Simulated assay, not measured.
Amino acid sequence: MTDQKSPSERETWPAVWKGWRRRCPKCGSGPMLSGYLKVRDHCPVCREDLHHHRADDGPAYLTILLVGHLMAPLLLIVFETFRPEPLILFTIFAVGCVGLSLYLLPRLKGVIVAFQWARGMHGFAPPA
Rank of each mutant, 00 (worst) to 15 (best):
R47A: 05
C46Q: 08
F79S: 12
M71E: 07
V98Q: 03
S101R: 08
P86M: 03
P59H: 13
R107L: 02
P44R: 13
A94H: 11
P106Y: 12
R54C: 02
G58A: 15
L70F: 13
C46K: 02
G68S: 04
L62I: 08
L70G: 02
D56K: 07
G96M: 08
G110W: 07
I64L: 15
K109C: 00
H52N: 14
I64C: 10
I92Q: 07
E80Q: 14
L62E: 00
A72H: 03
F90N: 06
G68V: 05
R47I: 01
P86V: 05
I112N: 00
T81F: 10
Y61P: 01
S101A: 15
V98N: 03
V45G: 05
V98W: 06
V111G: 01
V78I: 14
F93G: 07
Y61C: 01
R107Y: 01
H51P: 05
P86R: 02
H53N: 14
L50S: 11
L105M: 11
E80P: 00
H69L: 13
L100P: 00
G58T: 14
A114N: 00
T63H: 01
G99K: 09
L89R: 06
C97G: 15
A60Y: 12
G96R: 04
V95Q: 06
Y103W: 14
L70Q: 03
S101E: 09
L104G: 02
V45D: 15
R83T: 06
L108P: 02
P73V: 05
I88K: 08
G68A: 04
P84T: 01
L104V: 06
P86A: 04
G99Q: 10
T81P: 06
R83H: 14
M71R: 01
L70N: 03
L104H: 07
D56L: 08
R54V: 03
F90L: 11
I88A: 12
H53E: 14
F115A: 15
D56Q: 10
G99L: 13
Y103K: 04
E48I: 04
G99M: 14
R119D: 00
I77H: 13
R119G: 01
H51M: 10
F82T: 10
R119L: 12
L100Y: 09
V111N: 00
G96C: 08
A55V: 01
A60R: 08
L104F: 06
L89V: 01
A118P: 00
G96H: 04
L100M: 15
L66M: 12
T91A: 15
P73G: 07
H52G: 13
D57R: 11
D57I: 10
I88P: 05
E85L: 11
A94F: 15
F93V: 08
F90V: 01
V95H: 05
L100G: 06
M71F: 06
L75A: 15
C46S: 08
C46T: 07
P59D: 10
D49I: 08
V98S: 04
L87A: 11
A118K: 11
P86Y: 04
I112T: 03
E48C: 05
A72Y: 04
I77G: 02
F82H: 13
D57E: 15
G110A: 06
E85Y: 09
C97D: 11
L105D: 09
V111F: 04
P73A: 09
A60S: 12
E85R: 11
L62K: 05
